[in-house]
Design a protein around this nucleic acid. Structure first.
Lengths: 121, 121
DNA sequence: AAACTTAGTATAGTATAACATACTAAGTAA
DNA sequence: TTACTTAGTATGTTATACTATACTAAGTTT
């Protein structure tokens, strides 16, 4: 599929049902990556401060448990949105940051925000 | 917040942590609306054919049960993304279609698709 | 009278996601 | 020697999401 596809071309293809070849629909794939109670907040914190340590993230995201932060980070890492660098000092520490792939989500969040400003009271 | 905010202004605000006033973060709100196994597929089908009947949707979305289609449609309706018109004939039928708010999601799906074309193999 | 239509509802069960709490290693500082 | 540090893991429980199956109304056609 064309990486320079314009919005108008996209809409035309959607209305023709061109994207019906499910299984690797990019929208569904991405929605799955962002699914879960904490994923977006983690990405958001990493947009504000980059890199961040495990403990910083935990402090910044109120209510999250160790278990959920670990699991969410592992999944974001497996999806290539977040990278993890481990420093083997004592006490050991770890730095999490957005990958290029993760950073490239910002235009999507921008469109979501503009939509929200218009339609969410 | 400014509805004409440019992407550059948005990125600047994100990095300053301006959107931290959670509770009505537009991105999280929207992600919640699209969460669930079937929501996006329903919206997608309504982009292809508009309006659609309950039975048509059920046939188009393979594997969905009555229960999940009903629940998902009810939630999409409650979120204002889909509208439902009931025709009290015999046998009765119902037409579902995207609202303006629902249609306005297309630019977001476009950005998601462009992201996917670049980063999903 | 029996079967068909549409758009669901009802009920119960399974699977997945999230939560709470306690615990670990290995060195440093008090 | 005890407490503190970081970045988790382990275990069990609860809550939510999803599935499967059967059933309904009310008129129309066979």
């Amino acid at each position: 599929m064309n990486k320079n596809m314009t919005y108008e071309e996209y809409v035309e293809k959607v209305q023709k049902g061109i994207f019906t070849d499910e299984g690797n629909c990019p929208v569904i794939s991405l929605l799955l990556m962002l699914q879960g109670k904490w994923k977006f907040q983690i990405i958001y914190e990493l947009c504000i401060k980059n890199p961040m340590r495990f403990g910083e993230l935990k402090k910044a995201i109120e209510g999250i448990t160790n278990t959920m932060l670990t699991n969410s980070l592992r999944e974001l890492e497996a999806d290539g949105l977040v990278s993890r660098i481990q420093f083997n000092e004592i006490p050991p520490h770890v730095e999490y940051s957005l990958t290029e792939k993760g950073n490239a989500l910002l235009p999507i969040f921008y469109e979501m925000t503009m939509w929200g400003l218009q339609y969410i009271p």
